[in-house]
């Protein structure tokens, strides 16, 4: 063991690393927002519909949950690329993560919807609220509480999963780290620093989620 640690290069490029960390957060947050919307839609289709739409939703959910996230990413990158459909690395990662998030969240939402008793729907309708109002005012707020913790986990997972982006050429935090590490040969130092950044990011997200839960769920 005569390895000499050199942290200087890491500190010098720290601003670049942090900038790429913002990209990581950006793609994770966007993929979560889209994932929640698609996940809600998928779960509602799976619960209420039959026919091709249901088949489509079930396939999406099954594929998202039961195949490697990396393959899902490659599909949107190289898979579609083979057909001449090309997207920017950012979009590839965004689509891959959204696909994955939607599948997992859809199943969480489905559990949430099933946990709300039918009597809540009846009570709401009997007051003259229409189905849309019933869902947006009565059902979904309660479902969101039920799925809040799984949702936070998925958010963390999205941040960590986005590191796969470097394999499709996306210079998010991991991609950027890889770039500097191979340029300077300070491989251990760079990946150690990046691990710390990921760790801090995740802790911040979990803390923020906790604070938000306190504000949102008073009952």
């Amino acid at each position: 063991m005569d390895y000499n640690f050199h942290w200087r290069p890491v500190f010098k490029t720290l601003p670049d690393l942090l900038e790429s960390a913002i990209l990581t957060v950006e793609v994770a947050v966007l993929s979560m927002v889209l994932g929640i919307l698609f996940g809600l839609a998928l779960s509602l289709i799976r619960i209420h519909m039959t026919g091709p739409l249901k088949w489509f939703a079930v396939s999406w959910i099954e594929l998202a949950r039961n195949t490697p996230a990396l393959l899902q990413l490659f599909f949107f990158g190289f898979g579609l690329g083979a057909f001449g459909i090309h997207f920017s690395p950012f979009l590839i990662v965004l689509m891959g993560l959204t696909f994955n998030n939607s599948g997992y969240l859809a199943e969480n939402f489905r559990g949430g919807f099933n946990a709300i008793p039918d009597t809540q729907i009846r009570a709401s309708l009997s007051l003259g609220m229409n189905s849309f109002q019933t869902y947006t005012r009565i059902i979904i707020p309660q479902v969101l509480r039920i799925v809040y913790h799984p949702m936070t986990n998925q958010m963390v997972w999205a941040v960590l999963m986005s590191s796969l982006g470097m394999l499709v050429g996306f210079r998010e935090l991991s991609g950027e780290t890889q770039f500097f590490a191979s340029k300077t040969y300070r491989i251990f130092e760079y990946f150690a620093a990046t691990a710390v950044i990921y760790y801090v990011l995740v802790k911040i997200i979990l803390g923020a989620a906790k604070l938000m839960a306190l504000r949102l769920f008073k009952y």
Partner: peptide, 9 residues
């Protein structure tokens, strides 16, 4: 209704 169904949230 028979079952209480106030909106808990």
């Amino acid at each position: 209704f028979q079952q209480w169904n106030s909106f808990p949230h």
